[in-house]
Design a protein around this nucleic acid. Sequence first.
DNA 1: TAAAAACTATGTTATAAAGCACAAAAATAC
DNA 2: GTATTTTTGTGCTTTATAACATAGTTTTTA
Lengths: 233, 233
Amino acid sequence: MSRKVREIIDLSSTLADIWRVLSEEERELIKKNARFVHYKKNEPIYIEEEQPRDLMCLLKGKVKIYKSGVGGRTQIIRMIRPIQYFGYRAFFAREPYVTAASAFESSTVCFISMELIEEMLRENGNLALFFIQMLSCDLGIADNRVVNLTQKHVRGRLAESLIFLKESYGLEEDGATINIYLAREDLANLSNMTTANAIRTLANFVNERIISLDGRKIKIIDEDKLLKISKIG
Amino acid sequence: MSRKVREIIDLSSTLADIWRVLSEEERELIKKNARFVHYKKNEPIYIEEEQPRDLMCLLKGKVKIYKSGVGGRTQIIRMIRPIQYFGYRAFFAREPYVTAASAFESSTVCFISMELIEEMLRENGNLALFFIQMLSCDLGIADNRVVNLTQKHVRGRLAESLIFLKESYGLEEDGATINIYLAREDLANLSNMTTANAIRTLANFVNERIISLDGRKIKIIDEDKLLKISKIG
DNA sequence: TAAAAACTATGTTATAAAGCACAAAAATAC
DNA sequence: GTATTTTTGTGCTTTATAACATAGTTTTTA
């Protein structure tokens, strides 16, 4: 399964965002409490219904947050990139996880006790505001997502996902290939469509010279067109 | 348009939730800063792209938070009932509103400067946690909503909306009629479907003796069945 | 309270996307 | 490195739901 990583990780640089708002004392406490766990590709990090205990910060790799819906169909809710925090919402809401998380590729996650975090943020207004801002942004994204996923057609939804992936994980050295390697099924689950439709629509985009494909690698040729398709739905 | 209400409103009872976590000093400050505005039926409270300035608390009436999507189709994102807070997310996220709000029926709203609130919560950990919890709950609801609205069929979505309305606004004296009076179009916008489909599906529910209709008044006859339809999609 | 506007109801048609099936290719396991 | 499993790619069929049309009804307004 998962094992703690042996290497000593420089927390101050990897947890940068949260680090800035902490006092020296608080930093020490966190350092003492942080645990590191490594996950293999496709290994689950937490599952639905589980009790949340830790704030998680992705240090290396890629993680997907997803939810299984009607008839076992899964919907990817968010994708996490390094130095992003996750897993804390359910703890704050005092409920079990309504989502699951798993490593997309080989990943390292830092765990910090949510009890400790909550104690700290009661005293540290900046830390509280850090979480408030993160939650507020995520809620805005979720609100947008509801409309995009329900009202746009497959082309629009897929175009949007491709742009989202590019924004999230960036491009490779060639300046065009999206820096993520994911199965058509995951792309479909991200875009709320069936795998067959994701495949078909990708093929259409290739014909229209909007993208090009090399196996699972996707190269964006005409980003403007992609943006336009995403916008008009 | 809207006018300030003249009556003196007892803040301590109407803002109950937030009041509990405030000091006497903070309460005084809020009392001095609070403004009350009355809205007529269908009057807008804020619109998309506008700059957020105030925390709003609905004192009386019903409010819908909505978003216009592709081709002008609107999606109702949340519905607010008295003593619920709204309008604060965008301020915390440092962005303009991505949603709009309007009064469903004649409503009274209390406005409190977000700058004041943010100042306070920096010092008051309980107030910070109040917002963190509210945001965390809303984000969980939004995550669920994404899956429900995208994966369930019209029957499931409508059934879910009816249950949601009952849970939110309760029943009338007869213990069966949902205590809200809304147009079929709003019901459709809440459930992500066209008005015609909302009407048709309601008619089906009547035939199946799950509900009965009297104009816009909806009486739930068989809640178990409604729950079942909502669950299976 | 009468006239205008908006909403409700229902039938018909069009269409986007799911479902299913199967062959080919690729990834993974042994 | 070969065998087995999983993924990809396409064609065909079915279906859910949107779109459109129109008449009747209710609500709003002046």
